[in-house]
Amino acid sequence: MRGFRAHKVALMLRSLRSRRLEARGRPTRLSALLLLAFATPALAGGPPPADEDWPCPQRRAGAISRAAIWAGPAAESRWDDDREAAALARKLASRRTPLDEADALIEAFAKQAGADKDKRLTLVFEGTLDLINGERDKVMSAIARYARGQKALAAKVREDAEKAADAQEGQGDITAPDALEQAHPDLKWDKRIFDDRAQTLTYVCESPVLLEKRAFALARVLQEKL
């Protein structure tokens, strides 16, 4: 839901533009409205977030546990010691490999894996999970960075809006279309960047989930071959 809230903030900003008339001669009120829009932690909403830097409705969870996706045996050696297993793990973990090709790749590996088939398939699983967890970790850090960026941007828009309102006080007419934004181009750009980013939040938040789904689907195919 938080993504939706961020979008709502963007919508509020847009409606602010249409309320310029109301703001005539009342710059303090305009400033107050802008403050209000950005005062709520721009990316928060719903229940209080456990983690200020986490903007997604999905809970921020640690690495995918082996036990959550695997009912097979435990690995007896390092996965990267088995070169073929490691090569397959890399291929499977890569998002460039379509999931529907995974079955054939795993099947081919299982056929030539020899007597240690189960042990080696377990190594493929270990490698795939390690690599996907690594990528997921990077994605999660990027999302946290993104959230911090949005927060900083929200603070800047708030500050600029206050300045704009101060400067406007007792001066000329700001009811002309986009007068406020024309007078303060930074504010316009920052708002636009904020809006755009807020709109992509849902998509951004889906990426760790997609990796979790991929890890689960691959583990399932590997298990079927045991």
Partner: peptide, 9 residues
């Protein structure tokens, strides 16, 4: 307390 699962899972 399932072995291998984190409490948040």
């Amino acid at each position: 307390d399932a072995p291998g699962l984190t409490p948040e899972e």
